[in-house]
Write a protein that binds this DNA or RNA. Structure first.
Lengths: 201, 201
DNA sequence: TCACATTGACACATCGGTGTCTCATTTTCA
DNA sequence: TGAAAATGAGACACCGATGTGTCAATGTGA
């Protein structure tokens, strides 16, 4: 792990990297269900002993930080990819929502409890920066009502993603159907359409 | 507390009743914020010692049960009152939503975590019975789209109430504004209205 | 094959929350 | 005012989760 100069390197593969990744993934999945889950449960899910877990993460907090960083990175990358190549803010909102619904575990882990990561240095408001910006553009485009507070729109946006992810996790709706109905509900609510809406382009 | 026959009575007022009520209310409020909050925090919020709390509730579970029962009872009563006297399912949904938003603490306590009370004997699906029934009628009326799964509508309904209650708790929106925008969003989403909607009766 | 890295299985101390108990003090009410 | 009820303060044992350490077994790569 350290060369002759004592500089630690970061190999992309290798035993340690794989083990570490397994633990972080297990933490996200387990804590998405129940943030109070003990390290025991995470070690079990990652198929390692609690000893090994403690070798990689000295204490619970450092694993929380790592999981938070990982979850944000995955979501950031996926979000950026989803948004790129869209022709309008309306399209960006839809594309982004489909990604968020698809990564439900991470979404739930990150946003289930608003003050779960309050005061955590790792916490980045990257998405909370990007989303309001898209929404403002969508309002300028006329795709989103401009007489509604952006903070409200953000809340509803995440909330609907959350419900959709939960519906998938509970096997109530398929992934595709869940994403479709989520997008529809976000823009048009649950009211019956007075006419066939042709604006789904 | 017990008459000559040894039959325990349930006084509407009295020291014990007041103390008990204070503890249960504190539990709902505290656990709405964080369900892992220790009994310590509840006792403090209720302005009693932990000794007293344990005199009223032998263990944590019995306090959880009492809080759950109380929360459901309040919400049931308020919901029934809200729904009565409505002319249509559409009105019932709106009236009920305004109540739920207004009792945000209780709503959050009850529905923040889907499996918080899983397996609890006290848990009643009273609301989960009433709401789908109203929604089915709303679909029959044409006020809610009938090509959307009722389970999805229920999820979105609670979710939007939850966001509205959170917005109030975070001082982002006023109680009135929050309820208004919640109702609007539930039925029509966040898209700009193509025409002025006259269907708010 | 051999040296080293990695791991699992324990043992152990620690810590915070829980539940029980006692006793002195305060409050309530007849 | 006086007895009973209610409370607060604290001591105590208990338990599960956490964090540290050791040691033997297994895996890995030169």
């Amino acid at each position: 792990m350290a060369n002759l100069l004592g500089v630690t390197t970061e190999p992309e593969s290798g035993v340690r990297t794989r083990t570490r990744q397994a633990i972080v993934s297990a933490a996200i999945a387990e804590w998405a269900r129940d943030f109070a889950a003990p390290l025991n449960a995470i070690a079990e899910r990652a198929d390692v002993s609690r000893s090994t877990l403690h070798r990689y993460f000295v204490d619970r907090q450092s694993l929380v930080d790592a999981a938070l960083r990982e979850a944000q990175e995955v979501l950031d990358n996926q979000s950026a990819a989803a948004v790129s190549g869209c022709g309008s803010a309306r399209e960006e909102l839809e594309s982004l929502m489909r990604v968020l619904v698809d990564f439900g575990d991470i979404l739930i882990f990150l946003f289930a409890d608003p003050n779960r990561f309050a005061g955590n240095a790792e916490w980045i408001e990257a998405e909370d920066e990007m989303l309001p910006e898209i929404i403002r553009r969508a309002q300028a485009e006329g795709a989103v009502a401009d007489d509604v507070e952006p903070s409200w729109v953000v809340g509803v946006y995440y909330s609907i993603c959350y419900v959709a992810a939960s519906a998938i996790a509970a096997d109530e709706l398929s992934r595709l159907r869940s994403a479709d109905v989520a997008v529809r509900t976000f823009f048009h609510g649950v009211a019956a359409s007075p006419t066939t809406r042709p604006d789904t382009h």
